[in-house]
Design a protein around this nucleic acid. Structure first.
Length: 297
DNA sequence: GTCCATGTTCTTTA
DNA sequence: CTAAAGAACATGGA
């Protein structure tokens, strides 16, 4: 479910709730969502302060004291949300963290500012994941195995990486080791925006095509972040709000509907097991007609 | 009952 | 050997 824009939205909505909070309690309902299996999540977390939260690819990284880190991956159906501890937990809630903020109220009294301790605010951070493709990870390196960030990748960087593989561009862009953060929706939308057929061999993209694709990826992702992600099924941000980008998808899940550029019906095919949506007219397979003329030896 | 799903990883095949 | 395709994972909704 969640790709880069959704994960980014979750992180920005999570940040004000968890930054600087103290982990008072940990309830792990299922040990098998933790990697490595059997690592002592409760012991490692209780009493820690969460210094910050950030995103790398589709990973949500929590920074703790002494440089310690862990990350959450949401898989297909994972959700991270902030709740009142008194609210009943949804089914498939596998991890709950009780967090407290030692709040201070800052008031001005005459010329001076006075800080008074607030009643401590207690919230519960919950990880819920029916399909359990997601999980909690305590690796030595939270960035291991990830390619560059799509929002900052250069056309040169992308071209170099694509040149090394003959796979269709659709499969290559889904490979997190090649570029980190894209999923099925945003690959299809980006390829449409760049006018590139999803079956085009990665190593056969022309220079101008890679430049166009790089710009398209950034444009689509930034626009999606601005709309707070796509809610197709049950994606919600940390406050429980839906995204709005699904309303302006141009190709994803629009099979048979008219292309918004040229009006002909959009097609859906399967590439390496993933459903792929595109416009057969706006995304031509052959970009330049004949092969370069060959001189005789 | 069937098919499909926003993801990743392991296994099999070429 | 490597690269790429395919299967597997688990659950719910159409």
């Amino acid at each position: 479910m969640p790709e880069l824009p959704e994960v980014e939205t979750i992180v920005t909505t999570l940040r004000p709730h968890v930054t600087g909070s103290l982990v008072r309690d940990v309830f792990l309902a299922r040990a098998d969502i933790v990697t490595p299996y059997g690592c002592n999540v409760c012991g490692r977390l209780v009493g820690q302060t969460i210094l910050g939260v950030s995103r790398r690819g589709k990973r949500i990284i929590f920074m703790l004291e002494r440089g310690e880190k862990f990350y959450v991956h949401l898989g297909m159906s994972g959700r991270l949300g902030v709740f009142d501890p008194a609210d009943p937990a949804a089914p498939h809630t596998h991890l709950r963290l009780t967090l407290s903020h030692v709040g201070f109220a800052v008031r001005t009294r005459g010329k001076s500012t006075v800080r008074t301790a607030n009643p401590t605010e207690v919230i519960e951070l919950r990880f819920c994941d029916p399909r359990r493709f997601g999980g909690i990870f305590w690796p030595t390196d939270c960035e291991a195995g990830l390619g560059p960030e799509p929002l900052t990748i250069t056309p040169r960087q992308l071209a170099d990486r694509l040149a090394k593989t003959r796979r269709p561009i659709k499969s290559a862009l889904l490979d997190q080791r090649l570029i980190a953060g894209l999923g099925n929706i945003y690959v299809d939308e980006s390829l449409f925006a760049a006018g590139i057929h999803p079956l085009t061999r990665s190593d056969r993209l022309t220079g101008p095509q890679v430049v166009k694709l790089t710009a398209a990826i950034k444009r689509i992702l930034n626009r999606a972040i601005h709309h707070r992600g796509s809610t197709l099924r049950d994606y919600r941000d940390a406050d429980g709000n839906s995204g709005g980008f699904q309303k302006i998808h141009k190709v994803y899940a629009r099979e048979g509907q008219p292309c918004l550029k040229c009006g002909i019906p959009l097609k859906r095919i399967v590439i390496t097991g993933r459903s792929t949506h595109f416009c057969p007219k706006c995304q031509k397979r052959r970009q330049s007609g004949a092969a370069a003329p060959r001189t005789s030896p």
